[in-house]
Design a protein around this nucleic acid. Structure first.
Length: 900
DNA sequence: TATCCGACAGCAT
DNA sequence: ATGCTGTCGGATA
């Protein structure tokens, strides 16, 4: 079945709507056979025993729900085991006005008016057996053009190698390319009156050798900058005056070869009207940046994601104002307001946020004008657009991208003018595009160092929206310039060095909007809302009378780049406190909330600060041992067998090595772990001595002083924390999917790696505390993340964890539950921890043992059971605050006593 | 200065 | 697409 057919079916079902038949019609619309649906209706296929529910294996769960419960109910359904057992792809709830659905495989949500369903029909396409169609082919025109531009670029560079000799000539080349692109667009999209005028004239007036191509282009670009062309030859007079912005500066065109000229003409022959200025700019940007060449436009932000930011920031509110305006005066006032708003992207790249915003604002204006026209009746007084490109401000560090942003805004203006004419000027009234009158206010520069107020001046009454997707870089990936940027931006702040580079934009954004009506919102790495960065960044923002007014919780960033890791991002909007509604989005579910904490949760603003001692009375936890060896002190099974068979005595220098991966996947790894008194003996073994030497060389080459020093003892780990006796092991990184943290128990024949956290000299009940649901709820809330997966930390997760003092008797009781868990694990010796703790394959007995432990742990806190994780977390946060208060009080007393 | 630890527009399978 | 490494700079005592 084709997707257009399905869309048609869905429209049909809405047009002939029946409450009783709705869900059945829906299934039929997506191509489920009539016989199956009949059997479902009769009840044969319905696996739910609850009245009014429909549970169709591997397909859907459906229920009619009260309006006020739709959103809460869908979250419950998504967790209910009896439902998940049947693996429905979708959960669908409706009150026949609204429809809320969840894709249980992808975790995506849908929350729409039922009558809008035909517009969102693709959400349920997997029901028809096809995954949602992949949009990657849609950009083929952009891709082809970009690759061809890359060819031309390479040819020009080859013929004009001197271009790279100065910054100025690179800049000139950028402008030159930008002018070519403008001409390609102009001749295909009626900006130039005659179609193909650029390519045709070029082909006719230049020699095949390419030798005079640059002269032709010099003359042509001069002409495009000249208002009065009377004195020029006829072939140039045919062109129009464009303006003094794009063509103002006199630049010598690069020399062409015959191949370059041919490529230029081929480029002109492409159909540029199909090219989409939203993303083309980002792709073409890759042309001049060789590193990105293979992944054209890797970092461009999709329209979908841009809307996720601009809708809650301003567009939704403007549309509300539009809906509520009923008189011509009100509507005109709204246009006036819109025409005064400033949109500012201080990391604008090739301008996608500004372009999409521009288009959306123009569309809104068209709608307002249509409404005015309706009200005015017979003789509408339509004016030209009030929206100016000069309302759009940007800063971009990359010179070429900044040229592309300026160009793309012109093209977007032209595109929207066409839409404007089509929708409003049925009488053929039009306005000449050329000469281009004004441009967006895009400045080239480093946004972390420039004064934003100078780029986009702001007064206390100005309506300004700051938007964008600035660069993210964790502190260890920043280069020297970026570190210097951080130093300048945070010159008045202590303890900023571990912040992500993007924190510069948040801090400057906060200073920029202070005491104004402006707001800002950025797409950002989720790192600044998790782990240790939260308490570093957010006090700087929230202490200035500002608040998070909307946020999208973590979602996976998708880009077309090959070989590039995914990254999890959030979208955060900040404003000066104003007491109006706040919205928290999870996937596409929108929830009105009382507060949005810096962790992007609906709780008060509590900061969990890393501690080096436990808050509760628990044994100390430390990081595992770090080899710092470039792999030379570590052995896999094969290497170990080989080395021992050759020289059996080495066995005494080898211990088992256990990291998160070895523990979770059940693989074997070994390490060379020797003590002070057998160093000499170890060096006698050739294989070991060779490895030590490699370690020494590696450490000497390190930038870090401490590591260089450790080159003196290459036979030891860089940081050896190993102790005698048994220990509990917690993997540093673990999948987000698990409901429990898999914890291990090992003896000292194992050395735990730096990818673990361990507790030596331990009692079993502590194993129970860390394995508990209470603990993972806490960890999920406060831990840092790698993508979406948890990063367990002793200082942040364990040392901060509030756990009550318990009696020895309680401890002994907990021990029993821990033994039960270990027993259950032992029943499955062939299964890895990954299998045991995968929520879909977890053995029932193990799950039950964990649940029994959970109850016992929770009773240490209070007798009344917890209803859900939200309640658990609330309780834990409260405990944390109380215990922290007592702790600091105690510390102060201690200090004052010392002073006496 | 010695010691300890979180993070990763990531990295490997 | 899943799921965790190892090296590094920064902070603390």
């Amino acid at each position: 079945m084709k997707s257009t057919e399905i869309k048609h079916n869905v429209q049909n079902l809405i047009d002939n709507f029946s409450k009783e038949e709705f869900v059945f019609d829906l299934l039929v619309a997506y191509g489920i056979s009539k016989t199956s649906v009949t059997r479902l209706k009769k009840g044969d296929y319905n696996l739910s025993k609850v009245d009014g529910e429909l549970l169709y294996k591997k397909k859907i769960f459906y229920k009619v729900e009260a309006s006020d419960k739709l959103l809460s109910s869908i979250e419950e359904v998504a967790k209910e085991e009896r439902i998940l057992k049947q693996q429905p792809r979708f959960a669908i709830l409706t009150d026949f006005k609204q429809l809320v659905a969840k894709d249980l495989k992808l975790g995506k949500n849908l929350d729409i008016q039922l009558k809008e369903l035909p517009n969102y029909f693709d959400f349920f396409l997997p029901l028809a057996g096809s995954e949602v169609y992949n949009a990657s082919n849609n950009n083929e025109a952009d891709r082809n053009a970009s690759y061809k531009m890359a060819d031309l670029y390479d040819l020009l560079i080859e013929e004009n190698p001197a271009i790279y000799n100065s910054k100025e000539s690179i800049h000139n080349l950028n402008i030159f390319l930008s002018r070519l692109l403008f001409c390609f667009f102009a001749e295909d999209t009626e900006i130039f009156k005659d179609k193909s005028i650029f390519t045709d004239t070029l082909a006719q007036h230049t020699a095949e050798s390419g030798k005079d191509t640059h002269l032709f282009l010099n003359d042509l670009f001069d002409r495009l900058n000249t208002e009065n062309a009377d004195h020029l030859p006829e072939y140039l007079r045919k062109f129009e005056y464009v303006n003094g912005g794009l063509f103002g500066q006199k630049i010598a065109s690069p020399i062409f070869t015959s191949k370059a000229r041919k490529t230029l003409i081929e480029l002109g022959d492409l159909n540029w009207s199909e090219i989409n200025p939203d993303i083309f700019g980002s792709m073409i940007q890759a042309v001049v940046d060789k590193d990105y060449r293979s992944d054209l436009g890797m970092h461009y932000t999709s329209v979908e994601n841009i809307l996720k930011l601009i809708k809650p920031l301003f567009l939704d509110e403007l549309y509300d104002a539009y809906e509520n305006a009923t008189t011509i005066n009100q509507l005109r006032a709204l246009i006036k307001r819109i025409s005064k708003i400033k949109f500012f992207d201080p990391a604008c790249g090739s301008g996608n946020f500004l372009i999409i915003t521009y288009k959306e604002i123009r569309l809104l204006e068209i709608k307002i004008l249509e409404k005015i026209t309706d009200l005015e009746g017979q003789s509408p007084t339509i004016k030209w657009t009030e929206i100016q490109l000069s309302q759009f401000y940007g800063i971009e560090i990359d010179d070429f991208a900044h040229e592309m942003a300026i160009l793309s805004l012109w093209l977007a203006e032209h595109q929207m003018n066409k839409v404007f004419e089509e929708r409003l000027f049925d009488y053929g009234k039009s306005k000449p595009i050329l000469p281009l009158k004004e441009a967006g206010q895009i400045k080239q520069g480093n946004a972390t160092r420039r004064d934003w107020n100078e780029v986009c001046p702001i007064s206390s009454t100005d309506e300004v929206y700051v938007i964008g997707n600035p660069p993210y870089l964790g502190y260890s990936r920043q280069d020297e310039t970026q570190k210097e940027d951080m130093k300048i931006v945070f010159s008045r702040v202590n303890n900023y060095k571990k912040l992500d580079y993007i924190a510069c934009w948040f801090y400057k954004g906060t200073n920029y909007i202070q005491n104004t009506k402006a707001k800002y919102a950025f797409v950002t790495t989720n790192s600044i809302t998790q782990g240790e960065q939260v308490a570093l960044l957010w006090p700087l923002v929230l202490s200035k009378g500002q608040e998070i007014d909307f946020a999208h919780q973590s979602f996976k960033w998708t880009n077309n780049a090959k070989g590039n890791a995914g990254v999890a991002v959030v979208i955060i909007g900040v404003r000066n406190i104003d007491g109006t509604d706040k919205f928290l989005y999870n996937q596409n579910l929108k929830q009105s909330v009382k507060n949005i904490s810096p962790y992007l949760a609906n709780t008060s603003n509590v900061y969990v600060i890393p501690r080096n001692k436990t808050l509760s009375k628990l044994s100390p936890m430390i990081k595992g041992s770090s080899p710092g060896d470039n792999g030379n002190l570590l052995l896999d099974q094969e290497e170990k067998d080989k080395i021992i068979s050759k020289n059996p005595i080495t066995a005494k220098f080898i211990k088992r090595y256990i990291g998160a991966s070895e523990f979770i996947k059940g693989t074997n790894r070994y390490c060379i772990h020797i003590t002070e008194d057998n160093v000499k003996e170890a060096y006698k073994i050739k294989e070991l001595a060779e490895r030590f030497e490699k370690v020494e060389i590696f450490r000497l080459n390190s930038k870090k002083l401490a590591t260089k020093k450790k080159a003196e003892t290459p036979h030891f780990f860089d940081e050896d924390k190993h102790q005698e006796g048994e220990f509990i092991l917690v993997p540093q990184t673990g999948s987000e999917r698990r409901n429990y943290i898999p914890i291990g128990y090992f003896d000292d024949s194992y050395v735990p790696s730096n990818a673990t956290r361990v507790i030596y000299k331990v009692q079993p009940w502590l194993f129970g505390v860390i394995s508990s649901r209470m603990h993972i709820v806490w960890v999920k809330a406060v831990a840092g993340r790698l993508k979406m997966d948890m990063q367990y930390s002793n200082t942040l997760c364990y040392n901060t964890f509030p756990f009550p003092d318990i009696t020895n008797k309680q401890k002994e009781n907990l021990n029993l539950y821990v033994f039960a868990i270990l027993d259950e694990r032992a029943k499955h010796p062939s299964k890895t921890m990954a299998q045991l703790y995968n929520p879909t394959t977890m053995p029932k007995g193990l799950l039950q043992a964990h649940q029994a432990l959970d109850t016992a742990i929770e009773q240490c806190y209070r007798l009344q059971p917890f209803k859900n994780d939200t309640e658990r977390l609330e309780y834990l946060f409260k405990q944390y605050e109380e215990m922290l208060q007592k702790d600091t009080l105690f510390a102060k007393q201690k200090q004052s006593r010392k002073k006496k």
